[in-house]
Design a binder for these strands. Structure first.
Lengths: 178, 178
DNA sequence: GACCGCTATATGCATACTCATATACTGACG
DNA sequence: CGTCAGTATATGAGTATGCATATAGCGGTC
């Protein structure tokens, strides 16, 4: 999976470090990846012939290993884009916690939702801050904006759900106290 | 992470196979897990003393290894529930594809979104079918319903996003044809 | 000149996860 | 009686991921 992302980011030749920075700036909200993971994957892509690398001097640090996408790499990228939309396995750790919160007596649910709401709101804020900086005229910018937009709408829906849930929890908690 | 879920499902003694079935029925929308992964994790939880197991005859199949949660297991579960809400690393494979869809010339975006919408709508339908069957009176049912509810709201938001996105894509595609 | 932060690559280790495969019992259906 | 679906456990192999750590150049600041 990371393969496609790295091949996509290598639209222009870049070092692993640059790819990782690009990643953090533009794609952080859609995929998480570690520097070590990126280096390893680039290494594998090179063995597979999807990229080539060349060591080049850097103006402000140690030597850089610059990766270039090959024709085969471009092909692999297009093949990935031609695949059906990949719905990932759902993995919501906080929902799993909430699912069993009844075992904690139910008294913790409200505090948990409050905390969750705060964290989600924070994430939403960072997404909203990025949005106006995207130029939607060119194709890449347009698609970037589409993905960012889902992040924003999804987070808003989650916040609404937090509010709805907290409204439902309060009377239950009150009943328990009686 | 799976530890907490398994310990939660072991509110009553169950075999690995039962846990997996329970999983598919009630928690499929919040965490994905493989049977082999569940067996292995139960094995580890036993080594750690959080569960014990005993082989018992089955009425309709081979022998079952039934797991029981220990006091230490209950403690570990409560500790997990007391942790802050765990926001998982974002991993949206289909968003990653969309992010780079400009490389495919942009002509594929609409078909991609249509396909995605269909898949998401299908998932939403299965969630909505489960909803009315949940009894929200008891604590576990209530919390189950909360998590299901987020699944439903999140999917509705995604569908809206698909529609919004398709409306934005069409004029661009028309412009490209000129 | 010492130290800090950023740039830059790479590896080791442990865990998590996926997919395939082996084994074997039971009940239903044709 | 054969076969299939469902019940049931377990392991091997390969991949992905996360976290820590080692190394080292460069530029600025105190």
């Amino acid at each position: 999976m990371l393969d496609g992302i790295l091949l996509g980011l290598l639209r222009e030749p870049r070092s692993g470090y640059d790819v990782a920075s690009e990643f953090r700036r533009g794609a952080r909200h859609l995929w998480a990846a570690d520097l070590s993971q990126i280096y390893r994957t680039l290494g594998r892509l090179e063995k597979e012939g999807h990229v080539t690398s060349r060591v080049e001097p850097s103006s402000r640090g140690p030597e850089r290993r610059v990766y270039r996408r090959t024709a085969s790499g471009k092909e692999a990228l297009l093949a990935w884009l031609a695949e059906a939309p990949a719905l990932p396995p759902e993995r919501f750790a906080y929902l799993a916690q909430l699912f069993f919160m009844g075992e904690a007596g139910g008294g913790r649910t409200l505090a948990f939702l409050k905390d969750l709401r705060r964290r989600l709101a924070e994430r939403l804020r960072t997404l909203e801050e990025i949005e106006p900086s995207i130029d939607t005229e060119d194709d890449h910018g347009f698609h970037t904006h589409l993905t960012l937009r889902l992040g924003i709408l999804a987070h808003r829906a989650r916040l609404q759900w937090c509010d709805e849930s907290m409204r439902r929890v309060r009377p239950r908690a009150a009943r328990r106290r009686r």
